[in-house]
Design a protein around this nucleic acid. Structure first.
Length: 669
RNA sequence: GGCUAUGUAGCUCAGAUGGUUAGAGCGCGGCAUUCAUAAUGCUGAGGUCGGUGGUUCAAUUCCACUCAUAGCCA
């Protein structure tokens, strides 16, 4: 490419400063880091900044709980986060915090511009208030019964049972999750940003190619339903920035979080003498990109451009949205050990394996990425070790032991080398458009070609024939040169291996390099070893353990009052065989079970175990049921009894079963 | 409940503006090979493209409904 160097600023979303980085976060940081490294490798001026998102109620409460100040808490997580990123070879040009003077400056500036531009309005809102803690309660800190289906222990904004959303004040029997008190309703005057003032600008910008088509579809929903005013105000106690002319009141964390991108960059500019306005000025010609997860599209695609416009800044060139991480096809789960912290991973497996695996799977859409643990093992071992690194290790020994490390002075097959170089354009295009999976496919196809080349020339036969010495040197040098080209293509993904390769080749790794001719290399050490299944198993085990320690979770409920045997005997428990289990159309939690209880006709039962069991897992299983429960009419039909299970709910439900030998219909006594 | 995505071989994913035998890698089988961390090369077997219904001469590709998965509902 002969283009002039581009000026690019890149950000990843700011991790919240009250928890550890986990492999779900890493999808984004690895995706971004690869892109940034690619841009730098291609000679562009590219900066990558990030920061901890340090404000908000959860941080305040956690600090209180630990008996430290919020500042101490966020300082601790800042150190932990940075260590995790460094060890995953994620190379920020600056990693900062939203609790910084720069951020306060820009937050005030943007707020002032919003106000002067007439975009701020005041409304009195009624919220739940915890009379004991003396604070307004965010939705997530209120529990109660769902106003729609009556399910207990639901959050203030939505019901996990019927999936409906509502206002916290709609909840029945609400309780503060912080103090356990019944909250009272209390009025408070809040400041709102009138988003609809920005509608014309937003429609133009979102349609300008700054967003992926899927994201644009989703954003369309907001325009259709009408842009609502955005509450940027929080009552004390709160950990955040005080609003300049509203003493004792605070900016909502989501106001100053994206501003944290600018603040982190400003901090970098001041230290490194970079021109801030060249990137953020209204008429900036530089490129600005935000990598984010699909959960925070709204903030970045509507609020953020509006704030920037009001503040007199430029808007992002594009927002790149990615999907979520699943492990073995399911959401990360602490009980299954698939909620893996960055540090736990690092304790067992090298970071570059995950970097490669994510690269091999990431496209430019918003699809979720699945970490399939078996696939991870096979894919990384085969692609990286068997295919790629193998090219070097099968050539290098001939060069070192027969030619004192000296490579041939001419290429054996210039056409092949040239083909490898030319593929670079396609690979670059794939990286540029964040189609890393495509890039990895191209690269691995080339690795296959290199292995085929060596296979057809058979250096191991040449070595036995003295007259073929020169050819032996030429073929192996060709192999090493091809390897070096591929290392250049993989450099954004495997930056640590690049260092090792440069050391043994005694030459730099570039994008589309000139071949090494008559060049002397250093002794070779294996670059990478295969992942062992036991490493993965150990990592999963460790993830189970690390969750087990904070057993602050719900303690087992205490045993209820004693009853007489007669009372117990009234419950007719029977062994039942599950003849059939099936999904119930329209039901979020239920499975329909057909049970053989030794009666003439099978029983029909609805059980709320859908999250924990797939129907096919249940067929033919024996379990225990209450056979004399009054049949209950449900929306989906009559339920003639109840199966017994233990556990807190959702995925953690464990159906009871009898030991072998029990027959359907037997009474449990 | 509304909205946005996703659902293609055992696994992970490509792909087709509707049209002859739906692609790749991994895994698996066979053969060859031994330079390489048992790696490599050749070759083979695997799919009614989530389900139902509709439009069409023709649908996995369009439409409707439905099921499953993820996210959002400020």
């Amino acid at each position: 490419m002969t283009n002039l160097p581009r000026k690019i600023l890149v950000t990843s979303a700011l991790p919240y400063a009250n928890g550890s980085i986990h492999i779900g976060h890493l999808v984004e940081y690895i995706q971004t880091d690869i892109w940034v490294r690619f841009q730098k490798l291609r000679g562009h001026q590219c900066y990558y900044v990030c920061a901890d998102d340090a404000h908000g109620t959860p941080i305040m409460l956690r600090a209180q709980k630990e008996g430290i100040t919020p500042e101490e808490l966020i300082a601790r997580f800042n150190i932990e986060h940075q260590a995790d990123f460094v060890d995953f070879a994620i190379q920020f040009d600056n990693y900062y915090s939203t609790h910084s003077p720069e951020n306060q400056h820009f937050s005030n500036l943007i707020y002032k511009s919003l106000k002067e531009g007439g975009h701020i309005e005041r409304h009195t809102i009624c919220q739940f208030y915890d009379p004991v803690k003396e604070m307004f309660l965010p939705d997530r800190f209120i529990r109660g019964e769902c106003p729609h289906c009556g399910a207990k222990e639901q959050y203030g904004d939505h019901c996990e049972n019927c999936l409906k959303t509502y206002e916290p004040t709609d909840l029945k029997n609400p309780v503060s999750a912080i103090s356990g008190e019944t909250p009272i309703e209390k009025d408070s005057e809040h400041l709102f940003v009138n988003l609809s003032n920005f509608e014309a600008m937003l429609r133009e910008w979102t349609g300008s190619g700054a967003l992926q088509p899927e994201v644009l579809h989703k954003i369309g929903e907001w325009f259709e339903t009408g842009l609502k005013a955005w509450d940027i105000f929080r009552d004390p106690p709160y950990f955040g920035f005080e609003i300049p002319d509203e003493p004792g009141k605070y900016f909502y964390v989501w106001l100053d979080a994206p501003i944290g991108y600018m603040a982190s960059f400003k901090n970098l500019c001041d230290r490194k003498n970079v021109d801030f306005d060249e990137f953020w000025g209204k008429d900036s010609q530089a490129e600005v990109y935000h990598f984010i997860g699909k959960d925070i599209q709204y903030f970045h695609c509507l609020f953020w451009p509006s704030m920037l416009t009001a503040g007199g800044f430029r808007k992002p060139t594009a927002v790149f949205v990615h999907g979520f991480l699943t492990v073995d096809g399911e959401k990360m789960s602490k009980s299954r050990g698939t909620f893996i912290n960055a540090r736990t991973y690092l304790n067992h497996i090298k970071p570059e394996y995950l970097r490669y695996y994510f690269a091999a799977k990431l496209g430019n859409g918003v699809d979720d990425v699945d970490l399939n643990l078996d696939d991870f093992l096979q894919r990384v071992n085969t692609d990286l070790v068997n295919k790629f690194v193998n090219i070097a290790s099968r050539c290098v020994k001939f060069i070192t032991s027969h030619f004192e490390g000296k490579m041939a002075s001419e290429l054996a097959d210039t056409a092949l080398y040239q083909q490898f170089i030319e593929e670079g354009d396609k690979i670059a295009e794939a990286y540029e458009s964040r189609d890393y999976n495509k890039a990895m496919r191209y690269i691995m196809a080339l690795a296959d070609r290199a292995n085929q080349y060596i296979d057809t020339h058979k250096p191991w036969t040449m070595v036995k024939q003295a007259e073929n010495k020169a050819e032996l040197q030429a073929v192996c040098s060709q192999g090493l040169n091809l390897f070096r080209v591929l290392m250049g293509y993989l450099a954004p993904v495997l930056p640590l291996m690049v260092n090792q390769v440069e050391a043994f080749l005694a030459a730099k790794v570039f994008w589309q390099p000139e071949p090494l001719l008559a060049h002397t290399i250093n002794p070779y050490k294996p670059l990478i070893t295969r992942i062992q299944k036991k490493q993965i198993d150990a990592m999963i085990e460790a993830s189970k353990e690390s969750l087990a320690t904070p057993s602050k979770k719900t303690p087992p409920s205490s045993v209820t009052e004693t009853i007489s045997y007669e009372d117990f005997a009234k419950v007719d428990l029977r062994i039942a065989r599950i003849i059939k289990a099936e999904h119930v159309e329209g039901a979020q939690k239920l499975l329909r079970l057909t049970l053989d209880v030794g009666e003439e006709k099978p029983r029909n039962i609805f059980a709320g175990i859908k999250d924990a069991y797939a129907p096919e897992q249940l067929t033919d299983k024996l379990t225990i049921m209450v056979a004399n429960l009054i049949p209950r009419k449900m929306r989906f039909g009559l339920s003639e009894g109840m199966v017994l299970a233990a556990g807190p709910g959702k995925k953690d439900i464990f159906l009871l079963g009898p030991d072998e030998g029990a027959k359907p219909g037997m009474r449990v006594k």
